[in-house]
Amino acid sequence: MKTLIPKLVDAIGPSGFEEAIRELIRKETAAWADETWTDTMGNLYVRKAGDGSGKRVMVAAHMDEIGVIVAQVEDNGFLRFANIGTLAPKTLLGARVRFANGAVGVISHDGGARAEIIGSKLPDLHRWYIDVGATGKDDLPVQVGDVGVFAHPFVDLGRRVIVGGADNRVGCAVAIESLRRLQNSSHDVIMVFTVQEEIGNRGARVAAYQLHPDLALAIDITPTGDAPKSELTMAVDLGKGPAIPVADTRMISHPRVRQALVDVARQHDIPHQVFVLTLGGTDASAIEPARSGVMTANLMVPCRYVHTPSELVDWQDVEDSVRLLTAFLQSDLSQVGG
């Protein structure tokens, strides 16, 4: 996984423009898949067939990431942009943007010189711009409509790793690695690498409607409650194992699916944390209401500094998440119902 994750974060995939990351994941999973297909939105489905006696299980990991879209080019070569997904202005000043063609730019805002040096109140997004080093319109390497993502220097800290783009390439890695390790599962497992999660869970909703599985798990990262003076009252710490939310702000995890995850973790001595996610939600909330309903829960990797270019995760949490997901998919899920 130490080679897989850097590869995944290197591929560009802002919401709605996931082609590069999709092709990479398709390649990384091909040898382990019984069947692979995509739909019109660009969701990637990777199926590992069961023996017919188990359940139809959907595992969703979104492969899109937050980013920017160029909205206007100014005469002096500066680019006005709009957000793709939610951007926190605090993380923008001086941040770097990478475009698909390799162009790189730095972000600032109108009258930003003071803010850059001593800090000041941050303006609304329409007053920010990207500087790609062009002197005017003629030597501009990008144009209106091009999309970019934040530059992600990957740093292995030993036990932990700074991996900008952990949301959700770490989740994708957990799903991919689990697929590779999966053996003798009775269940029909369909890993769905979903699109457009960051702009409203749009891919997962469509995938769930098409698959209508017996049950579903969404794999994502979660902010933690263990940073100094964290204002998030959340019982989840970095390094204490995969996190299993009882609820987020949009849905309640299906109790039986959640309990099955906990039971499997206990059987295999996998550390885990049951918690209440008090900020945001995941693809699960879009999967659950599909057709006549899908029993859905989440498996999440603890992550600090979410949605900054320097997300930080713990290798052991990632490894334990893979173990838990793999064991879950190999377990007898008949008591879950559905």
Binding site: R250, M251, I252, E288, P289, R291, S292, G293
Partner: peptide
């Protein structure tokens, strides 16, 4: 079910 959360049951029961 789930009206106070996200109108969940209204969607799924009606669909079925």
């Amino acid at each position: 079910v789930g009206e106070e959360m996200n109108l969940l049951g209204a969607q799924t029961a009606t669909f079925g």
